[in-house]
Simulated scan of single mutants.
Amino acid sequence: MVNVNCNILQAVDKNLMIADKIFRSRLMVGTGKYETVQIAKQSIHASGASIVTAAIRRLQINHPFEEKSLFKYLDWNSLWLLPNTAGCTTVEEAVRAASLGRELCKKIGQSNNNFIKLEIIPDYKYLLPDPIGTLKAAEYLINKQYTVLPYIYPDPVLAKQLEELGCSTVMPLGSPIGSGQGLKHLDSIRVIIENAKVPVIVDAGIGTASDAVQAMELGASAVLTNSAIANAQQPHIMASSIQLGVQSGRLAYLAGRMNELTQAQSSSPIIGISS
């Protein structure tokens, strides 16, 4: 598939920067829920993502290259691993998982990778992140020289507090994890973006390409999705679609949309038209 937006985007946009590392793609993808390793590999490639995230608690840390492991099949020279603490319910669990994530990065040859996606979710029904636990864990991990990307409910005050602690991004949810409901918190996410001096990455709830477009048009720096791709009938096609959605939304944001009017306005001049 030819990427028609690529040349324009490269001409008008800078690459995504998180901490001191530059990434060419503003789409991040997960590694879970795929039916087979081959489908996962094909979809991740089609997404054009630079960053892939994986839940540390679901990985065999001591044997990451076992036959069925996706890690054996991905090119870690071109992809950057974002370990995440999904499944952790307490600060202590998240800190332990972060340490394991750092070790995993070393095993795949990314010894300078200190990135961690921080998720603390004690709520099994709605999967909402714990704001107090996230603050505590973020402060500890930042002091241990991690590059912390916290997953949060879209609370502008919490987002600013995490930024001021030293988090390298904030990652507000669009809607509940895995729901595919799209962006249900537009006003709050808009405020977070307006106030932030670090990248804002919309995470969770993306269901299709139009959701990614909407997030990027708001001014988000990037989008992270897993279920929208892995649960699609044709995952690799959806991955490509969401990639184009991210690029399209970014271009629209950079272009600056027209002002909304309260009434119609003719596209053609009426001067000189005979009655």
Rank of each mutant, 00 (worst) to 15 (best):
P172A: 02
P172W: 06
L173Q: 14
L173S: 13
G174T: 07
G174R: 04
G174E: 01
S175W: 12
S175G: 09
P176H: 11
P176A: 13
G178F: 15
G178Q: 14
G178Y: 14
S179K: 05
G180V: 12
G180M: 11
Q181F: 14
Q181H: 14
G182P: 10
G182Q: 09
L183Q: 01
L183T: 02
L183I: 14
K184T: 13
K184G: 06
K184M: 15
H185K: 01
H185G: 02
H185P: 01
H185S: 06
L186G: 04
D187L: 12
S188G: 06
S188C: 13
I189W: 15
I189K: 14
I189M: 14
R190A: 15
R190I: 10
V191Y: 02
I192T: 08
I193P: 12
I193R: 10
I193G: 06
E194C: 02
N195Q: 14
N195W: 09
K197A: 10
K197T: 13
K197W: 10
V198P: 10
P199I: 13
P199Q: 11
P199R: 13
V200I: 03
V200G: 02
I201F: 03
I201W: 05
I201C: 02
V202I: 15
G205N: 11
I206G: 04
I206W: 04
I206N: 07
I206M: 04
G207T: 12
G207F: 06
G207W: 07
T208S: 08
T208M: 05
T208V: 05
T208Y: 04
T208N: 08
S210D: 04
D211H: 11
D211N: 03
A212Q: 01
V213I: 13
Q214V: 11
A215D: 03
A215G: 05
M216C: 07
E217N: 01
L218R: 03
L218D: 00
G219I: 15
G219L: 14
G219E: 13
G219D: 10
A220S: 14
A220I: 08
A220D: 08
S221N: 10
S221F: 05
S221Y: 02
A222W: 07
V223N: 07
L224C: 08
L224W: 11
T225M: 06
T225H: 05
